[in-house]
């Protein structure tokens, strides 16, 4: 009986392990091995296939690689639909994602061999270029997903996004109150800082983390220059310091978040564009057969 219980425990352990297992190492990297095998077979075939006058997408081997590549691309892009249904088991979403990643990587080999290393300013190379864009944005996505969440979590310091916003709002309210005794010029500095939307920056600023024209920083610089600060000025200066600290946390969060999300803004539209270019590639070949 003990062995039955033991087996059940072991099975549960496995399930629990698999629940926390990354799609990258799913099933002892089964899809990685399959993808490597496919790539090696494709390379060996390319070396051995007697294709004259030169390797070309229009040779018999080229057609085989092209067919495999096209089917792979269509299947890989179906993840966009498949991911909406999270299931477990043999055809689990995790298995599907693992296959998506590794088969997608093997597509670099298959499609490059399909080109026969012939490139030009045409729809065929456009499709190839879009495919590489999709694959490399995907590689970037995997890298940032495995590296950045820790930084994101460290930057939060146990604050939720809402708390960050509310903290900033609280500081702003105090600033507004504290700035009441100030003169016109100084009050204008505070108003300018308060009016600036911390989220009103484009994707490049978010990604780079270099916020030019930050009025809060300008106000801090201005207040730091004032000698013999009045009590009110002192308070405003201190609150501005708190504000910039809070802003910087938000900016770091924005930066990490942008780095985590930006690849999908390339990966997904480029996939759709690739499907269009792939269609044009195949139709054009047969149209001018």
């Amino acid at each position: 009986m003990a062995s039955v219980a033991g087996r059940k425990y072991a099975a549960d352990e496995r399930r629990r392990d698999s629940d926390h297992e990354s799609f990258l190492v799913h099933r002892r990297m089964r899809w990685f091995k399959i993808a490597v095998a496919i790539s090696i077979i494709a390379i060996l075939g390319y070396a051995l296939a007697d294709v004259k006058p030169r390797p070309n997408g229009g040779s018999w081997y080229g057609y085989i690689l092209g067919t495999i590549g096209a089917l792979l691309i269509v299947w890989l892009s179906l993840l966009g639909i498949r991911k909406r249904a999270m299931t477990a088991g043999r055809w689990s979403l995790k298995a599907w994602t693992s296959a998506h990643v590794y088969l997608g990587l093997s597509l670099i080999v298959i499609a490059t061999l399909h080109t026969g290393f012939q490139f030009g300013w045409n729809v065929h190379t456009l499709a190839y270029g879009l495919m590489l864009l999709v694959i490399f944005s995907g590689i970037y996505g995997i890298v940032v997903y495995s590296m950045l969440p820790t930084s994101l979590s460290n930057n939060r310091r146990e604050m939720t996004k809402r708390e960050m916003v509310e903290s900033l709002a609280a500081i702003d309210r105090q600033l507004e109150h504290a700035a009441q005794p100030l003169g016109r010029e100084e009050a204008d500095l505070v108003i300018a800082a308060l009016e600036q939307d911390p989220f009103g920056y484009g994707v490049w600023t978010r990604l780079s983390g270099h916020y030019r024209n930050s009025r809060t920083e300008a106000a801090i610089a201005a207040f730091s220059d004032v000698r013999n600060k009045s009590e009110a000025e002192d308070r405003v200066r201190a609150l501005l310091g708190k504000r910039i600290a809070q802003l910087q946390q938000i900016r770091r969060h924005l930066r990490l978040k942008a780095m985590l999300e930006v690849w999908l803004y390339i990966h997904v539209p480029a996939t759709i564009a690739l499907l269009g270019a792939l269609t044009a590639h195949i139709v054009s070949v047969f149209y001018y057969w």
């Binding site: 456009l126 924005l254 480029a270 564009a273 269009g276 044009a280």
Partner: peptide, 27 residues
């Protein structure tokens, strides 16, 4: 505002636009 979606055109819109350009120009 935390999400990148607030400052970038939607994936869907970009995808459709790119698809339309490619299909019209090359097909």
């Amino acid at each position: 505002g935390f999400a990148l979606a607030s400052v970038l055109p939607g994936k869907r819109a970009v995808a459709w636009a790119a698809l339309a350009v490619i299909v019209i120009a090359f097909l």
